[in-house]
């Protein structure tokens, strides 16, 4: 039933920084109602899930789940029997190469120059990162930096406004529509950005 939506391309859930249970108890109900199995083909997770249960829940959502390790994944303290995740991953979806990193390694956190360095190192069109708990969709040198924020709106030293958010990508060939889901004062707000992959030569020349 999933692939009957072929004309809309593949749906990719980008989500992360749950910090359950150390910083939050649950994913907000309004999000949970939307995040049900058999909608998405991929889940990309920026890490810091917080517990094995969260990981297992992600795996219910889609056949392909790509998770990277966050700075707190080693620290939850005992109950955490999460499988070891790699610090970075690269996933090919449609015509896009998508790189994933949690983001605590980025110096300073959330800096696009630094992110661009990682993006180039991974040789990807889209770099997904988290850690800052601030969602972002940014075009940078013809490529894209995406940060889904924290799905639970968990606290972070660099963030004062705690807005739960995640991102959904609808990838169709060389086009991606990027939906940002935010809960602002418990009201769902969705915005979208559409972008098309520049052909290879132009993206090369931009560097």
């Amino acid at each position: 039933p999933i692939y009957s939506m072929a004309n809309f391309g593949e749906l990719v859930l980008v989500i992360g920084d749950h910090h359950i249970p150390s910083r939050s108890n649950v994913i907000p109900e309004k999000f949970r109602r939307m995040l049900v199995p058999n909608k998405m083909q991929h889940v990309i997770c920026t890490g810091n899930l917080g517990s094995r249960e969260q990981y297992d829940e992600l795996r219910q959502l889609a056949p392909n789940v790509h998770v990277v390790s966050g700075d707190c994944d080693e620290m939850v303290g005992g109950t955490n029997d999460m499988p070891q995740m790699p610090p970075t991953r690269v996933v090919q979806i449609g015509e896009f190469r998508i790189g994933v990193i949690h983001g605590h390694q980025v110096l300073p956190w959330g800096d696009h120059m630094a992110l661009a360095g990682i993006r180039r190192k991974l040789n990807v069109d889209i770099l997904v990162s988290g850690h800052t708990h601030q969602n972002e969709v940014v075009e940078h040198d013809g490529c894209f930096h995406i940060n889904p924020g924290s799905v639970t709106g968990a606290f972070s030293p660099t963030q004062t406004k705690l807005v739960p958010s995640f991102i959904l990508l609808a990838v169709q060939g060389s086009t991606v529509v990027c939906y940002v889901y935010e809960l602002i004062n418990d009201n769902l707000e969705v915005s979208k950005t559409e972008f098309t992959k520049k052909d290879i030569s132009s993206s090369l020349s931009s560097y």
């Binding site: 939307m34 049900v36 120059m113 940014v138 075009e139 889901y181 969705v190 979208k192």
Partner: peptide
Amino acid sequence: RNLKSHTYQNVHSQSVSRHPLEKTV
């Protein structure tokens, strides 16, 4: 660095009332 210079966030972005996760369950 101009923190905003490379950031096109919400420049193309538009608010939507319809989105892929609608009417899910």
